[in-house]
Design a binder for these strands. Structure first.
Lengths: 193, 193
DNA sequence: TTAATTTCTTAATCTACATCAACTTTGCCG
DNA sequence: CGGCAAAGTTGATGTAGATTAAGAAATTAA
């Protein structure tokens, strides 16, 4: 059950069996059906969530009611409204299951306790956050300097597994175009080849 | 000399005098003239830089030769090519002084040594990275869901000190429009009021 | 299976912002 | 201070991608 997560952690820090047990004691497994939400904008985000199976998405809704996908969380990924989780103020992110999903939560309180019990986790989450920061900075650069077509091509390379079983309107939203434009773009790409 | 930095750190972790000394031993103060670079794209980023006075900017150059400002570093801010710093592979960021600047460097090696010597710094840099991640995620959302005018308004609120003494083409680049459009936008804003 | 709902496609029209070009203003360096 | 490069302005025109709308295809739920 926790194998995927523990293997993931093992890439960055080494844990004794005791430390693993302490860690696992803070986790709460759960599963959630497609289309259900684990977080709504305006709420305070109280957990980090690690996906073991299925897929979640984090998105905002702008003042015109348009959704914008900030992140996908396929197996092996963490997701949370980082702003809200850190500040414990109401956030702007909605987190929804795109398919039936199995995951574990680590509460904010649990995470902080973990830092004192096993300080090595400071390192683990620092590295995790660093990697996330790098990906987000790259996305900003891509959004500023590339066309939608180029961003799509990058998405395909970076998330090959997601392409197949994700509604394409979700991908359109992630790369920052409308579903209509995305559809056209795809058919033009096929025509070109 | 290190006061600004130490006060900054004190917001997140408490350091003994010994620990402060260890930290400072890893720092190297330097100053750099306007228009000089401390990092070029294609190079490996070997340092984090903390600005005490002046201002730096980090930017990429796209395949058409257009610059895109990823970040400004006024006094009290860190700057680095995080991708390159972490991976120690060639990066895409240029870092340039917008004015004569005084700063300190912390080398990648020094930072890692610091983590083992004073583990509290894991926490400090984790928090720093978390805050940066939150800001970057917000910027992605803003770029996807707001008009240039709205992004400018947010920029003004968030970086009031920068507005005055920054060439406006740099601000235009940061919010993701051309200098020409930015100029027009500003004059329309004035006309409106 | 079928009805209902959601997703995808295609087409016409529209707009925020880019590009190009010429000119004016600012600010820096000798 | 004066000359020159960089920054900012303004206007005409171009375009990537949005919007609206309506039908076709695919999923889902019953």
């Amino acid at each position: 059950m926790f194998d995927l997560l523990l293997n993931n952690i093992a890439k960055y820090i080494h844990l004794t069996e005791d430390e693993k047990a302490i860690f696992i004691a803070h986790l709460k497994p759960f599963h959630i059906k497609r289309k259900q939400f684990i977080l709504n904008d305006g709420e305070i985000c109280r957990n980090s969530v690690f996906v073991a199976q299925g897929c979640l998405r984090g998105f905002t809704v702008d003042k015109n009611g348009v959704e914008h996908v900030l992140s996908f969380a396929p197996p092996g990924w963490w997701i949370a409204d980082m702003y809200s989780l850190i500040s414990q103020k109401p956030g702007i992110l909605n987190i929804e299951a795109l398919e039936d999903t199995e995951a574990v939560t680590l509460s904010k309180a649990g995470q902080e306790k973990l830092y004192t019990e096993v300080p090595k986790f400071e390192r683990f989450f620092r590295i995790l956050t660093e990697n996330s920061l790098v990906a987000n900075q790259q996305r900003i650069v891509d959004n500023m300097s590339l066309t939608a077509e180029e961003r799509y091509s990058i998405f395909c390379k970076r998330y090959p597994t997601l392409i197949d079983h994700l509604p394409q309107k979700q991908i359109a939203s992630y790369i920052g175009v409308t579903p209509e434009f995305f559809s056209r773009m795809k058919s033009e790409l096929i025509r070109k080849k």
